[in-house]
């Protein structure tokens, strides 16, 4: 069976067909979007500068570095971690993050016995304030369909083989709750500062498709 095409494949195909080294012809949706935006601007319904500001916010300000700060603080500060696991929305707001698509947050903690994985099988719900916008694979039919029925197989494809005795919990974001996985800290990082720790925490670890590796030895928790 063939894979369902998405924008990346389409992009590559178009690159071969139309990219003559310099200028690339816009794909069909590109033209339609340009026309739609221009129409809405002419009708006074959108302010192009507001659109720029929205794009800028998610391209440059809001992303997984926010979530990494939350996780690093939880690793360093047990009282903060307790607040995060009890009322994630409030604890994340303490760090200055919240709002659109993160109005109601839940944090789930990985332990030596439990591994957590987040998916949205019905659409592509994702905690914007702490992780930014979702990657293409998170929104893909392959991930959305398989994460609930074959989480261990999905994790294996991400290079993560979990021991059989570990429990896998999959969180399907079907309501307006958004999930953040608090990964386990890697071994030998107890001496590191919160800032250093934050630099180790990846987006994938906060979705639950990866663990956080020790920077010195590459060891996993």
């Amino acid at each position: 069976m063939t894979d369902i095409p998405h924008s990346r494949e389409q992009d590559r195909d178009q690159g071969q067909d139309h990219d003559h080294g310099k200028q690339r012809l816009p794909s069909d949706p590109a033209l339609r979007v340009m026309a739609l935006e221009s129409l809405l601007v002419q009708k006074g319904l959108v302010d192009p500068q507001a659109l720029d500001a929205l794009v800028e916010a998610y391209e440059h300000r809001i992303g997984p570095h926010n979530g990494a700060k939350v996780v690093a603080r939880a690793w360093k500060d047990p009282a903060y971690k307790a607040r995060l696991l009890t009322d994630a929305t409030a604890a994340i707001a303490e760090m200055g993050f919240g709002g659109l698509q993160g109005e109601h947050m839940v944090a789930v903690e990985n332990t030596p016995a439990v591994h957590n994985l987040v998916v949205c099988t019905l659409c592509s719900c994702y905690p914007y304030p702490v992780l930014g916008l979702p990657p293409v694979w998170y929104k893909s039919a392959g991930y959305r369909s398989r994460a609930v029925i074959d989480p261990r197989g999905v994790l294996r494809e991400f290079g993560l083989e979990l021991p059989a005795e570990m429990q896998v919990r999959v969180w399907d974001s079907t309501a307006e709750l958004r999930y953040l996985v608090v990964p386990q800290p890697p071994p030998g990082t107890e001496h590191m500062s919160e800032e250093q720790l934050a630099s180790l925490v990846t987006r994938d670890a906060m979705i639950g498709v990866a663990l956080v590796r020790s920077p010195a030895t590459g060891e996993l928790p």
Binding site: M1, D3, I4, S7, R8, D11, P26, S27, P29, A30, V33, M34, V55, Y58, E59, G63, V119, T121, L122, G132, L133, P135, V136, W137, S140, A141, G142, Y143, R144, S145, R146, A147, V148, I149, V154, E157, F158, D172, D204
Partner: peptide, 23 residues
């Protein structure tokens, strides 16, 4: 889609941009 088979592979992309196209 939860639990369906045959819905395609999962293809993570290294250093994925926030948007792949301006549109």
């Amino acid at each position: 889609m939860g639990g369906m088979h045959g819905m395609g592979s999962i293809q993570p992309e290294e250093n994925e941009p926030v948007f792949h196209h301006r549109w």
